[in-house]
């Protein structure tokens, strides 16, 4: 029984990693940038959701949508102001800028509201459902459902809409896409908007699930989500989803064996093993689809 319980625990953690990883994987797929600020957009999303719920008295779903919209706008602003000029710069310059943006968001937040934490109000029904001795909280089921819905939505956007087609084209070959009449700048902005919206959603879900949010909460989940994205094959949307869930379960299993202090190390070991042994990730193929 204990092990099924642990599996449930792992999936709850993993679905949040997965949501953040989706944004990472999309942005990396299209401009080959490890967007370090992505974890901080996740943090902003959590705070926007918090303010929406406490100040404007909205429920969970409206808060989720408000947060997604505002995060999308923030993501586009970050891209336009900081990253756009760096398209032709070295990868290192772009990565350093991303680190700078990440610090800027974190410490501006601390400057305005202090480093303290904030507690999410109870917005979701919280009952433990007992299935054969395994207690599953209604929250974690709800979160998994929201995550899956968002992922299906994303798959739909990428595969069935015009902008999705443009994204795929740009990620394959930006110059060729431009020659075909695709507005590359707008497409990249759209990618940032969608990725950041997902991070914002993850922020609200995280807040509702774990209650505690703080200005530096995005750092570690951001890194973990990146690992999840690499694990699933960076640029691959279902891969990011599966990578997130696998990482969540692996971390839980490591803790379950009593090695909770080595949990983060385990995540990094997975990262290194994947990078060395199979850099294209679990789902990477030779002609992998990138967005």
């Amino acid at each position: 029984m204990e092990w099924i319980q642990q599996l449930v625990n792992g999936i709850s953690v993993g679905s949040i990693y997965a949501l953040i990883a989706l944004g990472y994987t999309m942005v990396y797929g299209i401009i080959k940038l490890i967007n370090f600020a992505h974890g901080d957009v996740f943090m902003l999303g959590a705070f926007i959701g918090f303010f929406a719920i406490t100040r404007w008295d909205v429920g969970f779903l409206p808060a989720l949508i408000i947060s997604m919209v505002l995060c999308a706008i923030i993501g586009v602003i970050i891209e336009r102001v900081a990253y756009k000029r760096l398209r032709s710069a070295t990868r290192i310059a772009a990565l350093i800028t991303a680190i700078g943006v990440s610090f800027l968001i974190e410490y501006t937040m601390i400057f305005f509201r202090g480093p303290g934490l904030e507690t999410y109000p109870e917005v979701l029904p919280n009952t433990s459902i007992d299935v054969f001795g395994v207690s599953v909280s209604s929250k974690s089921i709800l979160i998994l459902i929201v995550t899956i819905i968002l992922m299906i939505l994303l798959q739909f956007i990428v595969h069935k809409t015009k902008i999705g087609k443009a994204m795929r084209a740009v990620s394959l070959d930006a110059d060729a896409a431009r020659l075909m009449g695709i507005n590359v700048d707008n497409t990249i902005s759209a990618t940032f908007a969608i990725g950041s919206a997902l991070a914002g959603a993850a922020g609200v879900i995280f807040g509702a699930y774990y209650t505690r949010i703080e200005p530096l909460m995005g750092v570690l989940p951001g890194l973990k989500a990146f690992i999840a994205a690499v694990l699933g094959g960076i640029g691959n949307i279902p891969g990011a989803m599966v990578g997130g869930l696998v990482l969540g379960v692996v971390e839980t299993v490591v803790s379950a064996f009593g090695f909770s202090l080595w949990r983060d190390a385990a995540a990094f070991i997975i990262l290194i093993l994947i990078l060395i042994l199979k850099p294209s990730g679990l789902f990477g193929k030779n002609t992998r689809e990138k967005v």
């Binding site: 490890i34 990565l95 202090l261 080595w262 983060d264 990094f268 990262l271 990078l275 060395i276 850099p279």
Partner: peptide
């Protein structure tokens, strides 16, 4: 020896990972 086969961002992240592992080892 193992990581320098990687390039660019991947190398960056792998070295970051190793540094964190070293730190966690000392922590334990």
């Amino acid at each position: 020896i193992p990581t320098l086969r990687l390039k660019g961002d991947y190398l960056a992240i792998a070295t970051l990972g190793f540094a964190e592992i070293i730190r966690i080892v000392f922590l334990n």
